[in-house]
Amino acid sequence: MRPGNLEGLIATDQESAPKTDKDLPFARQVLADVMDPEVPAVSVVDLGIVRDIGWQDGHIRVLITPTYSGCPATEAIEEAIRDALIAAGFVQAEVIQRLDPAWTTDWITDEGREKLRAYGISPPSGSASKRSLTSEPPVVLCPICNSDHTERVSEFGSTACKALYRCCDCLEPFDYFKCI
């Protein structure tokens, strides 16, 4: 649907339309199509970056937590979220960044983990909180052949939030989304 065709279908934060909580699932659906610029197979909703969607002072407000405070894609993500909401009829969309509590890979949805695997990135294994307490090395499955016979090649992969691994069975290199 184009923004011009939305009138009458949803209430938006346009001055002439009422603002209702019924619009919030639609806003979440819009954001489910906003892909992460570094991993375009998963959305900002899949990654758990979107923490809350609501109305504040008559405008749609989205609360996000970047995957880490120094993430270079944060500004691009904020802009993509704002642009998508505006295109869907939510004028004057506001995106607020909150760093506390810090984002964790535990927030990645099950669907997001499957999308990462299908894209060729091994999703985080286990729970971030449990691993941080025990310092256990992760069991990293190859996203290509599903083997657990893998080895870390480098602590950093294509981005700082990923490590570079290699499968010892199929010999393919792949990124592993670090469990944080």
Rank of each mutant, 00 (worst) to 15 (best):
T159V: 13
L24M: 01
C145Y: 11
T12C: 03
A160N: 10
R51N: 11
W55Y: 07
P123H: 11
T74G: 02
C170S: 04
K115M: 02
E111C: 05
G89C: 03
F90A: 03
C168E: 12
I77H: 03
Y119A: 00
V95G: 00
H149D: 05
P124Y: 08
T104W: 04
S127Y: 08
D57V: 01
P72W: 10
Q56S: 14
D169L: 05
R61W: 08
S125L: 01
T159Q: 06
G126Q: 10
A17I: 03
N146D: 12
S154Y: 10
L99A: 03
A76R: 14
S147M: 01
I81T: 03
I144P: 04
P101Y: 04
F177I: 02
I49L: 09
R98Y: 06
T109W: 06
S147N: 06
I144K: 12
D83A: 15
I77D: 02
V91W: 03
L141I: 07
P173G: 06
P66D: 02
V139C: 10
Q97Y: 09
R61E: 14
V95K: 04
T159D: 00
E15K: 13
G54C: 08
S43N: 09
G120C: 10
D46V: 06
A84S: 14
I64W: 01
Q14N: 11
E136T: 13
S69A: 15
P18G: 00
E15R: 10
I180V: 14
I86F: 07
P143C: 05
L24R: 08
D13P: 00
L164P: 05
R152C: 10
N5Y: 15
V45D: 05
I53N: 03
I81G: 00
P138M: 02
G4C: 08
E94Q: 15
C142A: 06
F90G: 05
A160K: 09
V44W: 05
K162M: 05
A160L: 13
R152L: 12
D110W: 09
A27F: 12
Q29S: 13
G157L: 07
K115H: 03
I49W: 10
L116V: 10
